[in-house]
Design a protein around this nucleic acid. Structure first.
Lengths: 146, 146
DNA sequence: ATATATGCAAACCTTTTGCTCAATA
DNA sequence: TATTGAGCAAAAGGTTTGCATATAT
C-alpha cells in the first residue's frame, strides 16, 4: 500500500467518524487530493474531477475542501494575488519552496522550524496552532527561461 | 530622528528616484505606513488617511501600495480568508506571529530562517527571492478570552 | 504644458451562499 | 425515509481597472 493510499484511507475514516456521506464525487476528489504533492488549487482539482464527473461544480469542490480544512485534514495556503493551494497528502504545517515564476510549490524538509516556533511560543506566550514557511524564489527551470 | 522618520525619508527618496509625484495624499499615506508596526490592511490605512483627507479613495491607497510592492518598499502578506496586510516600516522578509483570534500580527526576531533558507536554496537550486514565516496561534489575551 | 495621481464607479475573480433536487445511509 | 450532498446561479468581498478631472513638476 502506497503512502497515498494510506492517507486516502485515513481521510475516509475520519469522514466516517463524522458521519459524512461518501458520494462518488467526494471519494474521487479525496483520491485526487491525497495522491498528489503538487499543491493544486480548487480550480485544478475541479478540472481533474470533471474528467470523471463532468457535471461536478466548483462549489462542491470548495465545500469539501472547507470541510477538510475544518477537520485539519488538508493544508490550505492563501496567497496575495493567486488562488488558494491545497495539500491533502500532508495536512500538517510544513515548509515549502514556492516558485514565483511557474507557481510550483514543493515541500521542504527540515526540523528547524519546529524548534524555532517552540522557542518563539515560549518567549511570547502564544499558543502555537501552526506555522507557515514559504521560501519564495525561482526554480532552476524558471531561471533558465529568463 | 526616529527609525520611522528615517524609513519615511528613505521611501520618499526612492520614489523621487522613480520620478513619482509627491501628492499630499501619498505623503500622508507613506507617513502612516512607515510609522506603524501593526501590519495594517489597505482598508485600515484608508480609514486613517481619511481623517486627514476625507475624500481619499481606497483605489488610490491600493495603487500606492502596489507601486511600493513593485519597488520592494512594502511587505505584502496575503491570507486565505482575510484581506492583505502591509508592512511599510520593515519591507524585508521577516517572520511573524499571527494571532488567528484577533488577527494581530507581530514581528518575530531571529536569524534562523535566513540560515535555513540559504541551505534550502543550495540544496534545491532555487534562487531565493524572499521568504515568509508565519507562526499561527493565539496571543495571551485571546487565550484568556476563551 | 505635460505627464501623473486622484477619485469614482464599474469590472473582476475567487470564494461563499441559498435553494432545489438527487442520492446516501 | 430522513438528512446530507450536488449542482446551479446569484451574491459577496477584496482588489483592479477605466476614465475624466485635478495637480505636481
Amino acid at each position: 500500500m502506497t503512502e497515498s493510499e494510506k492517507r486516502f484511507d485515513e481521510v475516509i475514516s475520519k469522514l466516517r467518524e463524522r458521519r459524512c456521506r461518501m458520494t462518488p464525487q467526494r471519494v474521487a476528489l479525496l483520491r485526487i487530493l491525497t495522491s498528489t504533492k503538487e499543491h493544486p488549487s480548487a480550480a485544478q482539482l475541479h478540472e481533474q474531477l470533471r474528467t470523471q464527473f463532468p457535471t461536478t461544480s466548483l462549489a462542491t469542490v470548495y465545500k469539501t475542501l472547507n470541510l477538510l480544512d475544518e477537520m485539519d485534514e488538508v493544508l490550505e495556503m492563501g496567497f496575495s494575488g493567486d488562488d488558494r493551494r491545497y495539500d491533502g497528502f500532508n495536512p500538517r504545517s510544513h515548509p515549502h519552496l514556492v516558485c514565483v515564476g511557474c507557481r510550483r510549490i514543493v515541500d521542504l524538509e527540515g526540523t528547524v522550524v519546529d524548534t524555532m516556533t517552540r522557542d518563539a511560543a515560549d518567549r511570547s506566550g502564544f499558543r502555537v496552532i501552526g506555522h507557515r514557511l514559504d521560501v519564495y524564489g525561482l526554480c532552476p527551470s524558471c531561471q533558465a527561461r529568463e
